[in-house]
């Protein structure tokens, strides 16, 4: 757009981890940009920036989305949840506990995305097979663990009745 034109700003009103957020943003800002740069929620990581790796996974109305390639305005009127919103009053969720118990992370870069994708699955389905977990996490890439401990952790959290 030529610089002579006014830069369009749009209103974004949504909740992030249960808190009301109201911002004036540019339409081109991604949800990851807004979370990390404007709200300081840096638990959401950006890696491939192409919806392939899953590191930037957050929940939009309970469903996993890639915040790296979603315009933040798409969150208008909706509920965004990030890894920062999982623990309540310092208590980890059973899923987070299971990740620690099963050593389901090493470098940790994929972990917030894994946790959010698995949280969406656990909230929808109580009885999970290994295949269900693998299918739900197919789009989340981990270069450290070899995945087995991650799948084990999600199954353990399902058992624990998250």
């Amino acid at each position: 757009m030529p610089e002579s034109r006014t830069i369009q700003l749009v209103d974004l009103a949504c909740t992030v981890n249960g808190r009301n957020v109201a911002l004036r943003i540019e339409p081109r800002e991604t949800l990851a940009d807004v979370l990390r740069e404007r709200l300081g929620l840096t638990g959401t990581k950006v890696s491939c920036d192409a919806q392939v790796c899953g590191a930037c996974t957050v929940l939009l109305d309970g469903q996993p989305v890639s915040s790296c390639t979603l315009l933040a305005v798409e969150a208008s009127g909706r509920a965004v949840r990030t890894v920062e919103g999982l623990a309540r009053d310092g208590s980890l969720t059973p899923l987070q506990e299971a990740f620690i118990e099963h050593a389901a992370f090493q470098c940790g870069f994929c972990t917030s995305g894994m946790l959010m994708a698995a949280t969406a699955l656990l909230e929808e389905q109580r009885h999970l097979s290994r295949e269900d977990v693998v299918h739900a996490l197919e789009g989340n890439v981990c270069r450290c663990t070899g995945y087995v401990p991650i799948v084990d952790a999600v199954l353990a959290a399902a058992e624990a009745g998250q």
Binding site: G54, P64, V65, S66, L70, H135, E138, G139
Partner: peptide, 12 residues
């Protein structure tokens, strides 16, 4: 459709 890309791409 269940196998298109990954769940995040399918959601948007």
């Amino acid at each position: 459709e269940r196998q298109v890309a990954n769940v995040r791409v399918r959601n948007t």
